[in-house]
Amino acid sequence: MVGQQCFEVVAGMQWVSSGFIFRHMESPVHSLDPRTRLLFAVELFVLALVADSPLEVSIVSIVVVSLAIVAKIAKRLVRTMSFTAGFAVMILVINMLVGQPLVYSIVLAIRFIAIVGGTSLFFLTTSPDELEYVMKWFRLPQDMVFAFVTAVRFVPVLMLDATQIMDAQKSRGLEMQKGNFIKRIRNFIPVLVPLVVTAVIRSGELAEAMESRAYGAVKKPSSLYALRMRKRDWATGAISVMLLVVSLYYFLVIAPIG
């Protein structure tokens, strides 16, 4: 049904984005210091890059999923990874078309899924606030941190706006899936224009509100909360580094390929 298809466009967008949007939860992973979680993400990234056989990259992917199970976000992470699988197939096909061996193409495809999964694991378990603290801890410029964190924070808001705008335009008889290819692209204009306009209005309002609350009055504002590494954060971090070293040794020295 036409109306249903239109609904599916939005539902699909939400489905994909929900793989990166933080939700408050209680799990062993969520309770770690965000820097430890970032360390996990970096380690998984390195492992995914170093792993060079289909078995090895698959193991890295399984580790990502296992961590997600511990963090109670497996369902959403698998969702992101299965969406990524579409691109992974593309990577596989293109590599084979340009004459790369099959095994190597498979490694590249699974590696892509593992990297996206690892990154998504970090974003799914890290609140925008924690993200801000981590970025500040890296001594990134205040304005940059604020802009980045605000962008992350506003993704769900924009998704909600998009849904409401689509509802409003459908109620005026707009059928997005109707007509030929060009017409279908043109059908997005009544949705995109209000989406951009509301985003611009909102950013203006946010800027004024921030200024009224003395944003930028001091160069280095203090924080209400400070990150603190507890024993278990150090311990988990240390164990993960050890595992990384062992895995690297195995991947590079014991079972190298090529």
């Binding site: 109306g3 335009q169 109620s171 707009l174 009544p190």
Partner: peptide
């Protein structure tokens, strides 16, 4: 479809900025 129903049931939404383009 929504389009068929909207012809009979007109909804005026709360936020004008969500529809003017």
């Amino acid at each position: 479809t929504v389009a068929q129903l909207a012809r009979k049931v007109g909804v005026v939404f709360q936020n004008p900025d969500h529809q003017l383009f």
